Computed example of a mutant assay.
Amino acid sequence: MTVTLITGANKGIGYETARQLLERGHEVYLGARDVERGEKAAAELGARSVQLDVTDDASVGRALATIEAAEGRLDLLVHNAGVLETGLDGPAALRSFDVNAVGIVRVTEAALPLLRRSAAPRVVTISSSMGSFWAVTNPDRPESAMPLALYAASKAAATMLTLQYAKAHPGITFTALEPGTTATDMTAAFGIGRPVADSARVVVRLATQDPAGPSGTLQDEAGLLPW
């Protein structure tokens, strides 16, 4: 059985990814900042819940300690927690990078000892083509017309972390992905996006593909993305 942890999984793409992975027989731990919301989502799905705030080192440590005590290893880590700040000031920048980039470091570093105990460890980071220099400078791409400075910059950092972790840990497969524009709470103000089930299928496909595949890449449902 594959032991999986998904951050920010009590709603949206994380929740739907958990549902689809449970259908594939994974033992899924839903990471959620709010204990009650996490437990409610886990009960609905038949998953397990751990309180996990990616901006809090102690919270991250407790969550991984819980998984270690129960499972002894971690096979799949999905970095799903994220924020989209539309403002542009110091506090918004700190929030953006703390969740979208520093949070990846916190959780990955805490998870590495458990991932190393897996026969086929994998880390999937939900990044964004908004963090691709190729996409945001290409007038044929919709990203070029979206002035979301902090989201784009923090997602570029998330993709770079994926690449650097892949270099540092060749025994673990690291993948960053663009899940597709999705109708979630994050995009509600824009009134755009497809159903979460469609985007979650992209996450699940990349999370369950052959571990011998490429590591340190940014991909979408069509394959490799330049960035």
Rank of each mutant, 00 (worst) to 15 (best):
V3Y: 07
V3R: 07
V3H: 05
T4H: 02
L5E: 05
N10E: 09
N10V: 13
K11P: 02
Y15A: 02
A18E: 06
A18Q: 09
A18L: 06
R19C: 03
Q20F: 02
G25M: 07
Y29E: 07
L30A: 09
L30R: 08
E36K: 09
A41V: 14
E44L: 05
R48K: 11
V50H: 07
D56Q: 14
I67A: 07
A69W: 04
G72W: 14
D75W: 10
D75T: 14
A81N: 05
A81V: 02
L84D: 07
E85K: 11
D89H: 10
S96A: 12
F97L: 07
D98H: 05
D98L: 12
V99C: 10
N100L: 02
A101R: 04
A101C: 12
I104V: 14
T108H: 15
S118D: 10
S129N: 03
G131K: 04
F133E: 02
R141F: 04
R141H: 13
P142F: 10
M146T: 09
M146L: 11
L150I: 04
A157S: 10
A158C: 09
T159A: 01
T159R: 04
T159I: 01
T162K: 08
Q164F: 07
H169I: 09
G171P: 02
I172S: 01
T173Q: 14
A176Y: 08
A176P: 07
G180Q: 01
T184S: 12
A189Q: 12
A189K: 15
I192V: 15
G193H: 09
P195N: 13
P195S: 10
A197G: 15
V204M: 13
A207V: 06
T208Q: 15
P211A: 04
A212N: 14
S215Q: 09
D220Q: 00
L225R: 05
